[in-house]
């Protein structure tokens, strides 16, 4: 118990000390995860939207695949990407291995199915009534689609939050493709894993607390945004 209290104390001191290394790690975490989420959101929502307005034979199968990929093991994604990005792999010429960009790619792959699948359910659930009503009121197709997206906004933002939670907490993939290089590809979660390896349990927990606080902050902002726009 004492150890855990000590961790909270340590977390507090780490935050107020504004340690330069720690700030670098935090900003890299945010940069990687938020960039990945932005890419995954744009592509995921576009796919979800396209899926809900089209009927085609393989649609059920595609949705099944998307739902399955929501549970992709990060280590598998990491290893697969490593083989792709390795200098002997098919995408090796890009020189992305062990860079923050590789980590962004990994996290985008992890977040994309979550955002696409969850956005699809929220768009699909509002579609029939809203779209028909909009069309009935004389809206064009595009205007009707905008109305649908607006109505599904609550669920879409939830899907973005879920994706963000997944990538901020993820360690297996970024460890493999980022390499956990000090001052370059070391993020919050890989630092926590490393400090655990080193036996610095209190520091690991302290970093975990800071990570949770950051996620709380981001989610609160998204939640306020969700509330405000939903009215």
């Amino acid at each position: 118990m004492n150890e855990i209290l000590l961790s909270f104390e340590k977390a507090f001191y780490l935050i107020i000390s504004l340690d330069r290394d720690l700030m670098g790690i935090i900003s890299l975490s945010l940069y990687v995860s938020i960039t990945a989420i932005i890419i995954a959101s744009f592509t995921g929502i576009v796919l979800a939207y396209a899926l809900s307005f089209r009927e085609f034979p393989a649609k059920g199968f595609l949705l099944n695949v998307l739902n399955t990929f929501m549970g992709l093991p990060p280590v598998v994604v990491g290893l697969f990407l490593y083989l792709m990005l390795s200098s002997r792999g098919p995408a090796g010429f890009m020189g992305l291995l062990y860079t923050p960009s590789a980590m962004i790619v990994a996290q985008t792959i992890l977040a994309f199915p979550i955002i696409a699948a969850m956005s699809y359910s929220s768009i699909a659930s509002v579609r029939p009534n809203i779209k028909l009503a909009a069309l009935g009121l004389g809206c064009t197709d595009i205007q009707a689609s905008v109305a649908v997206l607006k109505d599904a906004r609550y669920g879409i933002i939830s899907s973005v939050m879920a994706g963000l939670g997944r990538v901020m907490a993820e360690v297996g993939a970024v460890l493999i493709v980022g390499g956990n290089i000090a001052g370059y590809t070391r993020v919050m979660t890989t630092t926590i894993a490393l400090e655990y390896d080193k036996g610095n349990f209190d520091l690991a927990i302290a970093l975990g607390i800071i990570l949770l606080l950051i996620c709380l902050g981001i989610n609160s902002a998204l939640y306020m945004f969700q509330r405000r726009t939903y009215r």
Partner: peptide
């Protein structure tokens, strides 16, 4: 808001970019 985020992030990426001779 999204545009703002992108601008801020690209500034961040410049500051974290690698420089000099580094080996792995």
């Amino acid at each position: 808001n999204v545009i703002w985020l992108v601008v801020m992030l690209s500034m961040l990426s410049v500051s974290t970019a690698a420089a000099g001779t580094r080996i792995r």
